[in-house]
Structure formats: structure tokens, C-alpha cells
Nucleic acid binder design. Sequence first.
DNA 1: GATGCCAACTTTTTT
DNA 2: AGTTGGCATC
Length: 773
Amino acid sequence: MNTYLNTLNEAQKQAVIQKDGPMIIIAGAGSGKTRVLTYRIAHLMQQGVDSFNILSLTFTNKAAKEMKARIAGVVGASEAKNLWMGTFHSVFARILRSEADKLGFPSNFTIYDTQDSVRLITAIIKEMNLDKERYKAKQILGRISSFKNSLITVRAYFNNSDLQEADLHASRPKVGDIYKEYVDRCFKSGAMDFDDLLLRTNELLARFPEVLAKYQSRFKYIMVDEYQDTNHSQYIIVRSLADKFENICVVGDDSQSIYSFRGANIQNILNFQKDYPDVKTFKLEQNYRSTKNIVNAANSVIARNKTKLDKEVWTSNDDGDAINVMRTISDGEEGRFVAQSIWENQINHQLTSDSFCILYRTNSQSRAIEDALRKKGIDYKIYGGISFYQRKEIKDILSYLRILINPNDEEAFKRIINYPARGIGATTIDKLTIAANHYKKSIFEIVRYIDKIDISINSGTKNKLQNFMNMMLRLQIESQTKNAFEIAEIVVKQAQLIKDLEKEGTPESVSKVENVQELLNGIKDFITDKIEQGEEASLTTFLEDVALATDFDANKDDDKPSVSLMTIHQSKGLEYMYVYIVGLEENLFPSAMSMNTRSELEEERRLFYVALTRAEKVAYLTYAQTRYRWGKLVDAEPSRFLEEIDDQYLQYLTPKAINPIINNFVDKSIFDDAPKGIRFQKPIQRKKMDRDLVKKKEIVIPKNMKKVSQTSAKTNLFDENVVVGNIVEHNRFGTGEVLSLEGSGPNKKAEIKFGTVGKKKLLLQFAKLRVIG
DNA sequence: GATGCCAACTTTTTT
DNA sequence: AGTTGGCATC
């Protein structure tokens, strides 16, 4: 018993065994935070705390799942099952469902994603006849979102002259009216957006003392991970729930607070000690993840931030390699460098692709990297960007399912009323919306009782509407006796969704059909999973999962090893042996939108800190001199963050082939008779810092560059110039002899006799052969 | 009301 | 560069 305690260091152990009262664990990057949290929960349970009384809030659903699994390993699966564990959004969505009637919501309320919210606001702005240039839907949503996250309700807004004045000043006097209409329409649709899941929870706890008391007594022990990234709304929920027992344990690292753009308030963690004067503070400062070089380099950068808690991250790991800095002429070249480097590191160190991760500031940067990886034949997995569930064909099907559960869901209804096309156009939908607002009913009900109301729609269109409604009502009845998968299948068939796509016959529509198929499979998997775990497998839970799922949750891990690509934000909490941070350029990282204030810049710096501390062994920092942005080639300057790292931890790689731009255009030999001393350098010295970097460090021969430079010097090692008789090496088949060649250009094939698998005919452009003799 | 073409916008990060 | 929405035309 308690053997797990012996695997912890002293600081970790103290944090694990501290049972009661408020406590804060300040956990440096890579300091075993998850382990401490996991063991702390397991320890509580071993001390006799009922799992039902423990609430643990994590940052992602994936983190919750993994922690639950690890706890189950210590205390047993059946014990771990009752733990309340998940993201703020999913835990409180669950609570809201069971208390929904108190707030006037149906228990199967819809969760609007950002897309739904933007569409609704767009519609409202249009209905109110406002100038959509002045009232940009996305911006208005952002404003409403920040109101909600600061617990400023519509009423509070209209009671707050400062806020109204600010909007007036910004020439947007109608923001409050839009806000009000938006909230009303969500309510009428039985829908909550992401921020509502927190705001409405606060409403529930504030307005119904008996509900608050119930959950206060239930959650005797509360733990909050990534506390530095909680917003005010989340903060108040936690404070209210913990108010009875004050057994509140928050974990976080102020140096990794990177979500202020969505309302996260770093003050929550900085002020925790003020909130609870008798707080016990624990600091986890030993880093187990990274080399000394990486830890020290990261420290040297974050030291420049002014607002932070006092802590010192250190490691007893090896020094490791210096951090590699690479400049390329373009973003395309940057991608090729990364791909080449990964390829070589894989070979040289016998690593699989899953040891590598490529991090970038913005999703749009992935394209150039992807191209390069694909050309090199390196498997990769990309997280983020447009999630599967956001695709049009998928959202359309989900909208059908949403309507079956909650017919009042306005956004879903508007999506499908004319999809597939059934002759119901914008004019009709406008009329229906007006009627719906007038009668204070949902559009669904208006259509359902279209005969009973006074509305100027011609009989042909009315007929179409009734046909549609009849189908929906039929589906509704069927859905009551079927499981989520069966319903989805019937919907796809009844609404002729696949048929509609197949009719198109374009390559895009073919892939859409595949996506629909994948969705159906996904629902099937979901159901089997849930049934196996003895959990609820209803359509409601499926749709909730979909709405709150992150990209990580959606991805299956059983694929073949692949390089991970993601934004830095998504990389929080993860670690990889090799990390490539690309696009280290001014206006990109730090972002041009985040350089106006000191605090914005500090957040960008924390972001860089997060990126660098993902690396266990080796880190590469790359930047390009030119980059395509908005379809245009623009010049780029190296990021200030490169300068901010203490020089002693860096080594600069600047291969000759890439360096002088002019050499790509002019054959140098034509100037062979020119006077000595002529410089083939660009005369304009734009990149001041860049020159300095090169001047200072060029002579240093990078420690681990030996292998790299060897191979990159002989580029023909990897290309298609093999001849009969060559001994070649193939990634999977090993070594073999080239027996014959046929075809030319992209179709050039080689017949090779491998020792392991015998004779093979391979297309050279894909085979990636290395000539070794 | 549907279709197809052009203009405008995009790219900061996400539950 | 790629996507989306608006507008003209059928």
C-alpha cells in the first residue's frame, strides 16, 4: 500500500499527501504535475474519500480520460468510475442537463458551437437592419463572449454606463440590443453556447441556494488543473462550489498562461494566495522532461516577463544538444528543411515518427510543412484546423439529429430546411423567421402549423414545407425507439443525403460521401464504446460529445506512428523528443496582433516558453526570410524571441546552399575575372539582427550537424538517380540490388532484389531509396 | 428560387 | 491561395 508515494520526489509527495484545506501547486513545465494530480486523487480515495465526492476539472477531455485510466490503475476501475472528471464545459453541461428545468431550458438543450453563434448573430444583425460592416458578427460575438465570461449579463450590461459608453464610442450603440436578442433567441431555441455553459452554471448556483448547497456538499474535494487559464466565470464557479469545505486544490503554472484571448485571467492564479489566506503552497520545480540546455534556454526567455510567481525550474538531466536555429529563404524551404531534418534524425537515431512534433503559431502555417512531409513520404497527423465535425456535410447531418432531439434548435433548422435543395429559398425562410419572432414560437412550430396561421406564402411552397415537416415528424417518431446509429442511418437514407452528394459526381462530393460514411462509423463506435462502459448511449450524449470534443479526442491513437503537427496552444501538456518550432518571425510569432501592450507581448513570450518546454531532447527553431501570406510573398524579420534566448544555449545552422539568395539566379563563374574582394551579398541590409546572429556564430560548428551536413552534401543519396547495380536501402524493405530500370520521369521504376522480401518493382519518386554502394 | 461567377476576405490562438 | 458570400442571370 502507498507504494506509489515512493516514486515521488519530496515536493511532489508533500503535495499528494496534503489532504484538507486550500492549496496551490505551482508546477513548472515538465515537473510531473499530472502524476501529482493523479496520485493525489488516488491517495484521497485510499484515505477513504468517496470517489463520488471528488470533482476534478481538467483542460481537455483527453487529459481527463487519461487521468481516469491512471487512477483506475491504482484504485481499481470500478472505484475510479464515479469520479467527476472532465473539462469545465463538459462537467457543467452534465449538471446543467439535470437542472435545466430550473432555468427554463429543456434537459436536452442544444450546445451551439462558434459557427452556430456567428450565424445567429449575422441573422440578428440583418434582421435589425444594421450595417454589417460596422457590426461584424465575429467581433460582436467576441464582445458578447467576453461579457459572459466576466459574468456581465444583458441586465448588467444595461446597468453599466461605462460599457455602453465604450460601445457608443466605438460607433456601435446597438451592441446591447444585439446581445439581448442573441440571448433571447438562444433561450427560445433551447440552446446554450460555450460561454453559457459556464454563465448558466453560475446563474444556477446563484439563483438556487438549494442547488448550490447540493453540489457544495457533493464536491467535498475539488481540483482544478491549468488554473492559470481559468476565466472569471470559471473562477466564480470554483469559488462557490468550494465555499463550504474549502478543500480546493489548484494546479498551474503562471508561466504557461496562454489563453487570455478567451478570457483567461492570470490574476486568478496570482491572487489565489490572497483569496485563501491559510493556503498551503507547493512548488514543483524539478523538471524531468528536458535537457539542461532546453530548461535553461526556456528560463532565460521567460525571465524577461515581469508578472510572474517566484519559482525556479531546474533539471538534473544531461546538458543535451544546443538548440538549433535555422534560417531559410522561404516558408517552402523551411518546410523542406524540417522534413529533411526529421528524415535524417529518424535514420541516424533509429526513431519512429511519433518522436517528432512540429509547432507553429497559426494553423495556416501547416500547409507548407505538410507539402514537404508528403513529398518526403513522412507520415504526419495534423491537429486542429477545421475539425471533422465542422465540415458542411457533417454539420448538415448533425443538424438533422439535433432537430430530432430539440425541434426548437433554430440554427440547425435553418441549415436543413433547404438541404438537400427542396425549393425553399431565402425569402420563405425570412418570412418564417418574422412569423416565428411575431408569434414567439420556433420556426419549427411555425412550419408545423403553417396552415393555422396567417402568412403570405404561396401554396406550392407551403406544400413543400409540409412535405418536409412530415418527413421530420416521421423521423422523430422513429427516433424514439432507435439508438443513435440507427437514427443517423435512417436520416441519411430518408433525407437522401448521400444520394444528393452522389448526384454531383465531383471529386469533392466523393470525399464528402466518405466523410458521411465515417460519421456513421463514428456514431457506431461511440455507441459500442458507451454500452461497453455501461454508460448512456443516447443521441443527446453523442451530440454533446461532438460539440465539446476537441481535435485530440476525435483522433484515434491506433494509427501508425506519425509526426504531430499542431499550434502551440494545442501542444500544452504534451511532450516530444524532437520539437520543431517554425515561423519564428516578427509579426508572426510574436503575432502582429499581440504586440501592442506589454501584457500581450508577455503572453506571446509565455507561448514561446510553452513551445520550447515541450521538447525532451532536441529543439529546432526555424524562420524564413520570405513567406507567403494572403497569397503574397512578404519579407520577414527574425523573431525577437531568438534574440532573447541566452546565446550559450544556441547553435546556428546556416547551410550554404540556402544562404545567399543571389546565387540562385546568377552563375558566379561569369564573374571569375572580376577583381578580388567583390561581395555577392544583398546591398540592402534590412535584417540587422539576422546579420549579427550570423556574424557571431557562423564559425561555430554545430555539435550534431556532422551527420546532417554529410548527408545534405550528397543530395543525390535520396533522389532518383540510381543505376543498375547500385546497392540501395529502402525504409521498410532494407537493402537490395537494383536489377533493372524502366520508364522515365515520374514513372521511372526500378526492379530491386531485396534480401528480406525478394524482388520488388518500385516507383522511384515514392521509394525514397538511399544509394549505399 | 437556383445557378454561376466575381469580389472580398482571410490568418492568432479554442472550449 | 483558397474560401465564402453577394449579385446578376436564367
